[in-house]
């Protein structure tokens, strides 16, 4: 294959566009994820009330809401292909690494859209104190990439099992716990005006490690 580099970039881009288009056509996944995130946010907010200055609780609850949104929506990108019987066709036109990376990019985008709605709503409903936007967005961004990296690969695996949706939460949770720990610590320190750098470093290191492992593992995802 001549010029494999630009070819695979083109394939990545094509898969990302295809994902966005087929999502936009039905908006089924996005609506479900948004509704779920808002529902868990409502449950948290309704049960806990306005927490105001308890920023330790606020950071924990924020990331639990985001974790739930991840668990509810991230297997969708692959399960949709299997249920629509389109997986084989997709594999004919692109390599496993291109498919998985394309879906990873889509999942990052997807989570960002969910967060654009959920996070401001969370801050308002819970009566959170003002945030330091630069640091807060850095924690959110790195956390999102790590959440998506771990759950995309697990989603691709889960789509090939018998349980599919039911198993996804249990199996991805151990991989998401480091993200949860570091992201909660980072958000807490952001509100307490402490140094956020250690948590950010931890999140970035985990994201890089996950992405590197994923790129090595994507090629083993499908075979027959």
């Amino acid at each position: 294959m001549p010029d494999a580099g630009s070819n695979s970039t083109a394939a990545l881009w094509a898969i990302l566009r295809k994902e966005c288009r087929s999502e936009w056509r039905t908006r089924y996944g996005l609506n479900a994820a948004l509704l779920f995130a808002v529902a868990s946010l409502t449950a948290v907010s309704f049960a806990a009330g306005r927490l105001g200055n308890r920023t330790d609780l606020l950071s924990a609850l924020l990331w639990i809401v985001l974790l739930f949104a991840t668990l509810a929506s991230m297997s969708h990108a692959f399960v949709r292909e299997v249920e629509g019987h389109t997986m084989l066709l997709l594999r004919l036109v692109a390599s496993p690494a291109e498919i998985a990376t394309g879906k990873l990019l889509f999942n990052v985008l997807f989570l960002l859209v969910v967060e654009v709605v959920t996070v401001p709503l969370f801050l308002v409903l819970m009566g959170a104190p003002p945030v330091r936007w630069g640091v807060f967005l850095a924690v959110l961004g790195l956390g999102t990439v790590s959440l998506a990296a771990a759950s995309t690969l697990v989603g691709a695996m889960i789509a090939q099992t018998r349980g599919r949706g039911a198993l996804f939460a249990g199996i991805s949770l151990p991989l998401l716990l480091p993200v949860l720990a570091a992201a909660v610590a980072g958000t807490r320190e952001m509100w307490a005006a402490h140094a956020v750098a250690p948590s950010l470093r931890l999140l970035a290191a985990y994201a890089v490690a996950l992405l590197a492992a994923s790129l090595l593992l994507y090629d083993h995802l499908w075979e027959d």
Partner: peptide, 28 residues
């Protein structure tokens, strides 16, 4: 995960992937 996959080869392959991924998470 092992219990939910049919077929020896597929079970071996997917659980090996999970195992390697877990290997990344453990040190953290």
């Amino acid at each position: 995960l092992r219990g939910s996959i049919e077929g020896d080869e597929k079970r071996a392959r997917l659980s090996a992937i999970y195992s390697v991924l877990a290997f990344v998470a453990v040190p953290f």
